[in-house]
Amino acid sequence: MNPASPRDPLFEAVYDELRALAQSKLRAGLGGASLEATAVVHDVWLKLSEDPSKSELDRSHYFATAAQAMRWILVDRARRRRSRSIASVFGEGTDGDLGQEALDPAQAAADAQLLALDEALVRFEAAYPRKAAVVSHRFFAGLSVEDTARATGLSPATVKREWSFARAWLIRELGDKLPQELR
């Protein structure tokens, strides 16, 4: 399967839509509910698939792209907050574009976890590209085993097996990386 390239015009469109939708949902307030990736990714799919200009849009290609775009959005946010937090340790701001409100520790922990996962995933991808695609769909796009199977063209049983191995591999990898309280 072809991992979505950031220079791909579809990637641009999906990236924008995901961001905009997440932004509007958060702005509207969630009323105590959490905002899950799967909801955002599916809503954007509905929107794009209704767009006549995107009639040729292929569902499995969309989900692969959305997973990649979501990963980039999240990692970007986390990196920026991490950067800001290190800069504040040195007693200085950055020329970045984030607000300057204080970071709360839970936030910092979530960021550290996500960045560690992202780095581990880069290494995992190098060794197991197909399994990494499954992780991307399951984790970043929030797809179920069945949806992942449909999007990747694998059988559900294979998806389950691949996910199971990838999960164990990543947990082992992250075990050394994460602070105790996050393991």
Binding site: R81, L117, G142
Partner: peptide, 17 residues
């Protein structure tokens, strides 16, 4: 690992967006 075993909550991760 809870991170991998629970659906991803976007809210804290998208803070500021």
């Amino acid at each position: 690992l809870s991170l991998l075993d629970r659906p991803l909550d976007l809210e804290p991760l998208l803070e500021g967006i």
